[in-house]
């Protein structure tokens, strides 16, 4: 791992079909890594999107979001621990 850039502590996945573009997550995100996309989703909202880097996994966007499943926040698994395969999610492209 040494030599590679340090991976982000967190990762956020946004379901653009569920998002209504209220912007509360964009406002609340401490590292400011969320924005409203330029495109419209099928319901006519500009959905929230991740800039792709810098998420800390704090979960604040999840709590301020009014939709039950629009935001999922992941945290980096410490590499020294043996990974528990079922819980693991590969880093999203």
């Amino acid at each position: 791992m040494s030599g590679n850039p340090k991976p982000d502590r967190g990762l956020v996945k946004l379901d653009s079909d569920e998002c209504k573009g209220c912007g509360l997550c964009v406002e609340a995100c401490p590292p400011k890594v969320l924005h409203l996309a330029d495109h419209l989703n099928p319901y006519g909202y500009h959905p929230a999107a991740y800039t792709g880097a810098g998420c800390t996994g704090c979960g604040i966007c999840f709590y301020v979001c009014p939709e039950p499943g629009a935001i999922t926040v992941f945290r980096l698994v410490e590499q020294k621990a043996e990974p528990k395969s079922e819980e693991l999610m590969p880093a999203a492209a």
Binding site: G10, G59, F62, E67, F74, Q79
Partner: peptide
């Protein structure tokens, strides 16, 4: 790097909301 879910949709929400044909995704 591997990631695990820290905050996600609660289990006690339905997967789909059977309210209107096209709007089973949103409240």
């Amino acid at each position: 790097a591997s990631y695990t879910v820290a905050h996600g949709k609660a289990k006690c929400f339905y997967d789909h909301y059977e309210r209107k044909a096209d709007l089973q995704h949103q409240t």
